[in-house]
Simulated assay, not measured.
Amino acid sequence: MKKALIVWGGWDGHQPEQVAALFQQQLEEEGFQVNVQSSLEAFADAEYLKSLDLIVPVWTMGEIDQKLVDNVSLAVQSGVGLAGCHGGMCDSFRKNVDWQFMTGGQWVAHPGNDGVQYTVEINNSSSYLVDGISNFEVSTEQYYMHVDPAVEVLATTRFPIVDGPHVLNKAVDMPVAWTKRWGVGRVYYNSLGHQANIMEINEVKEMMRRGFLWCAEGKALAQSGEAAAGAYTGMQDNQL
């Protein structure tokens, strides 16, 4: 049985407890043993983290001890998956660039705030993770992100839609969902999820389900050696 850790907290406006409960249900339906914690001290036991298949952070706008980030990073480098959404993963710890490097991006703005109507455009040629999912409309925050150019983009949204100081720039297709690698671990992110109701949209729920499974499957591949060729070998150094 695969094992997952969900850690929720931070800013209450993102309904972290409710989102964590949805993710717990989703993972348990897929046969995971799920441990749900509401303290960042859940990241304190480095060996426990390495025993997991998947880590799911649901924590917005907090501060974190560097040692805890190092523990998560080393676990992911060893093959443990890391998957999350919205500010719960890519606006978790604004002061910690190591976390941002690992996750692949950082929120910087949501022009128009909540309730912006926009299209999520699926990059159907990018990955089987989005096979069969069509473009869809949402009314929620539209995340403008600073994104690692190494990520594989699965879906985008077009800016600008609402007015602001960014509108005189050329139109940009901002990543909404992506994957990347960290060591031999797999990382998945989806910028949707301002509140729990967004995570219950069929397309969003399916995208997260596939992301969770893809990330968790990476550990077995890493242990078998299939993912290790050319991988970073400094995992024991506690350095990023």
Results as ranks from 00 to 15, higher is better:
153 V>W: 04
104 G>P: 06
146 H>M: 01
58 V>R: 02
56 V>D: 12
87 G>I: 05
68 L>R: 13
103 T>K: 07
126 S>I: 05
169 N>D: 00
67 K>F: 07
74 L>D: 10
100 Q>L: 03
56 V>S: 09
145 M>C: 10
46 A>F: 10
85 C>M: 08
91 D>L: 13
66 Q>H: 15
112 G>Y: 01
156 T>E: 02
79 G>S: 12
129 L>V: 11
106 Q>N: 06
105 G>F: 08
170 K>Y: 01
108 V>P: 00
61 M>T: 12
81 G>R: 03
168 L>G: 03
128 Y>G: 12
64 I>W: 05
70 D>Q: 14
140 T>Q: 09
131 D>R: 13
130 V>W: 01
96 N>I: 03
131 D>M: 13
54 L>A: 08
53 D>K: 07
157 T>G: 07
72 V>P: 10
89 M>G: 02
149 P>S: 00
163 D>H: 01
88 G>D: 05
86 H>R: 03
166 H>A: 04
68 L>W: 14
144 Y>A: 11
60 T>P: 07
89 M>F: 11
54 L>I: 11
104 G>N: 07
158 R>C: 04
120 V>R: 08
88 G>S: 12
51 S>F: 10
114 D>F: 12
128 Y>K: 11
79 G>R: 07
47 E>F: 10
51 S>K: 14
176 V>I: 14
138 V>C: 08
132 G>H: 05
49 L>Y: 05
75 A>N: 10
54 L>D: 07
161 I>F: 00
159 F>C: 00
169 N>P: 03
168 L>Y: 02
55 I>N: 13
148 D>N: 13
134 S>M: 15
175 P>N: 01
179 T>I: 07
91 D>E: 14
93 F>A: 04
143 Y>K: 06
162 V>M: 05
127 S>W: 04
60 T>L: 08
152 E>I: 10
82 L>W: 09
141 E>C: 03
117 Q>I: 12
78 S>C: 10
51 S>V: 11
45 D>S: 13
79 G>A: 09
109 A>I: 07
145 M>S: 03
124 N>F: 01
145 M>A: 05
175 P>R: 03
118 Y>F: 15
141 E>N: 07
97 V>P: 03
167 V>D: 00
117 Q>M: 13
91 D>V: 06
57 P>R: 05
68 L>Y: 15
119 T>P: 08
50 K>E: 12
154 L>V: 00
125 S>G: 05
61 M>K: 11
110 H>F: 10
131 D>P: 04
83 A>H: 02
140 T>F: 03
45 D>H: 11
99 W>I: 04
77 Q>P: 09
94 R>G: 13
146 H>T: 08
52 L>S: 15
148 D>F: 09
96 N>M: 04
120 V>D: 06
